[in-house]
């Protein structure tokens, strides 16, 4: 009898763990997402993290009241390649945060047009991932999108 009770409790505990782990979003571990993307070979240069978040908020036109956390990996000048992870403070901010990410692509495209035309296809194919469950927006400007991890590769285009 005791054995049966033990087995039932163990099974319930396992079920609970599995349920909880399935609740964790695909985008809840930002550093893993970024590391996987950087290691995928989708970028033509080594992107570096920008530590000056205040500057990036300013460059992107982000309001700190709508973003809980952000990670920026940018080109140091040679290309327009980028991967940015933005976590909205509230579900209501998701739309605005995604809009900022898409606007950034337009800004980059304007900046590159007539200057480095080879960057334009990268920007035309930029991805913006919106995951309302985890309140995460990810912007990717890559050199070879086909090499991105699947979870990022199939995301909608930013300029659609």
């Amino acid at each position: 009898m005791n054995r049966l009770r033990k087995a039932i409790l163990t099974a319930l505990a396992l079920a609970l763990i599995l349920t909880l782990s399935s609740c964790a979003g695909k985008f809840d571990d930002p550093q893993k997402i970024i590391d996987d993307a950087l290691a995928s070979g989708a970028f033509s240069e080594t992107l570096e993290p920008v530590e000056n978040a205040e500057l990036m908020y300013s460059n992107f036109g982000l309001n700190s009241s709508m973003v809980e956390s952000a990670i920026f990996y940018m080109s140091s000048g040679a290309t327009s390649e980028t991967i940015v992870y933005l976590k909205a403070k509230a579900s209501e901010s998701m739309y605005s945060v995604a809009l900022v990410a898409k606007a950034r692509v337009v800004t980059l495209k304007n900046s590159e047009s007539g200057y480095r035309p080879e960057e334009i296809p990268k920007l035309d194919n930029a991805r913006v991932i919106e995951d309302s469950k985890s309140r995460v927006v990810i912007l990717i400007v890559a050199n070879d999108y086909s090499k991105l991890p699947e979870v990022l590769r199939d995301a909608p285009l930013a300029l659609e």
């Binding site: 000056n52 500057l55 590159e112 007539g114």
Partner: peptide
């Protein structure tokens, strides 16, 4: 320079072109 020098509290007026 603005992104990676680590200098903060300054204003940058820069664009690629």
């Amino acid at each position: 320079f603005m992104l990676y020098s680590g200098l903060t509290g300054v204003d940058g007026f820069a664009a690629k072109s």
